[in-house]
Design a protein around this nucleic acid. Structure first.
Length: 428
DNA sequence: GTCCAGGCTT
DNA sequence: AAGCCTGGAC
């Protein structure tokens, strides 16, 4: 734990000094922050989450590590059933490390951000290696940060809550609470602001009970200091919250304006045999849905995000144009295919085969829209039935290129493969 | 329907 | 700095 004298050195500008000068009795505000928060947490916090370890003297770091990785970018209610299934199938880190990737992927399917699942599986193997060498889980912040998928905040959470040692977290919840409490106007996506927030989090975290403090901060951010409509009346920090004083709670945290998202159009090929078995491809580890199974996708086009500064004339064209076509100020990009999709496309070309639209009714031919962080994806299901000879040919072509493939009907695919949500939508 | 949150890796 | 996914808020 850095001493307070060191803290000012951590801040690039006079950040903490600014905060301290803001209060006439700054040490009272800063020093009473944790006691007020912990009192609130004892009375009103959640103490029944299945991964919480603060009521035991022998915390299980595996449970905290697993839950923290799941809780990255994901809300508690979404994580709960996934966590239960993981613990049932992989009760120890050794079980997880020994599992096959496809089994891990199937357990994770639907949670999103699949790199987390790949890192989790890799991390389990790394942890078993550490345990075999030292007899125990890593015991230091650096030891945990060396595990794949564990960054500074997750490592701090594991130190504090999984080992009952000293640890600091500074996740999205903490950042929202702190930017409001101290009215920090810097863009939280900038590294200077990140540094400032980490320094403040460290200054506020009590040396004793850092685990309870971390839980309390996360609970505060999730239940009181919410993004919209924060419950300031119930907040133990209300009396010296600068954002509240100014009535500007929802102005924080400050983030740079989002860039317009491009749109991508693809066909999702349902390549079937006469028994209704569908061709599935395992996607490469990098890129979208890495390591998961997907239908072959056929790139159609990609259109740049809509500009914010459109002229009235351009807006009119846009309204008139209901068929998702390129408009004048939009750019068309290069096609994007995986190796497997290239092989399939070349094979279809060679045999002059074209997939047909699958719509139950004439009106039901709209593409499925799937929005991601950085683009909108419009997926149009297209069907193609192949004979036995063609099935053999395409299977051999893909296997020759070391592509992992599967022929499974819709029900079996959902039950046994890790399918991303968009694929489930298409099957439905 | 649209907008937005969210930690880590590369 | 960009890429990654889904669900909840509105």
């Amino acid at each position: 734990m850095p001493q307070i004298d060191d803290m000012t050195q951590l801040t690039p500008t006079a950040n903490l000094t600014t905060i301290e000068n803001t209060f006439t009795q700054y040490s009272t505000s800063l020093d009473s922050f944790a006691p007020r928060l912990l009192d609130w947490f004892a009375e009103n916090g959640r103490h029944d989450l299945p991964w919480q370890q603060h009521q035991t003297d022998a915390p299980n770091p595996y449970i905290v590590w697993l839950s923290e990785v799941m809780l990255q970018q994901t809300q508690v209610t979404t994580v709960l059933p996934y966590f239960a299934r993981f613990m049932a199938s992989f009760p120890t880190v050794q079980d997880l490390a020994a599992a096959k990737w496809d089994k891990v992927a199937e357990h994770w399917a639907g949670l999103g951000y699949y790199a987390r699942a790949r890192n989790l599986h890799k991390g389990a193997k790394q942890l078993v290696e550490v345990i075999d060498e030292t007899g125990d889980f890593p015991q230091t912040l650096a030891g945990w940060e060396a595990i794949s998928g564990v960054g500074p905040s997750t490592a701090g959470a594991i130190m504090a809550m999984g080992l009952h040692r000293y640890g600091v977290i500074c996740d999205g919840n903490v950042k929202r609470v702190l930017t409001r409490w101290a009215a920090i106007d810097g863009d939280i996506t900038k590294s200077a602001t990140t540094k400032e927030l980490w320094a403040l989090a460290e200054r506020l975290t009590p040396i004793e009970n850092s685990g309870l403090f971390a839980q309390a901060m996360m609970d505060m951010g999730a239940t009181l200091c919410t993004r919209s409509k924060p419950a300031c009346l119930l907040c133990p920090l209300q009396e010296d919250c600068l954002a509240h004083e100014q009535g500007r709670e929802t102005d924080y945290p400050v983030k740079a304006k989002k860039q317009p998202k491009p749109s991508k159009f693809s066909n999702a090929l349902l390549i079937e045999d006469i028994d209704g078995k569908i061709l599935w491809l395992q996607r490469p580890d990098n890129g979208i849905w890495g390591g998961l199974w997907s239908l072959p996708l056929q790139f159609v086009e990609k259109i740049a995000g809509k500009m914010n500064t459109k002229t009235a004339a351009e807006k009119t064209t846009e309204i008139d144009d209901t068929s998702l076509k390129v408009t004048s100020n939009e750019k068309v990009y290069e096609a994007e295919f995986t190796t497997a999709e290239q092989i399939i496309n070349e094979w279809l070309d060679k045999h002059k085969l074209t997939a047909k639209a699958v719509s139950k009714t004439l009106l039901d031919d709209a593409p499925i829209k799937h929005s991601l962080t950085h683009f909108h994806w419009y997926l149009t299901p297209q069907s193609l039935i192949l004979n036995a000879e063609q099935i053999t040919e395409i299977t051999e072509a893909l296997e020759a290129a070391q592509i992992n493939i599967n022929w499974l009907n819709a029900v079996d695919a959902q039950a046994t493969l890790g399918l991303p949500r968009a694929m489930v939508k298409i099957l439905e």
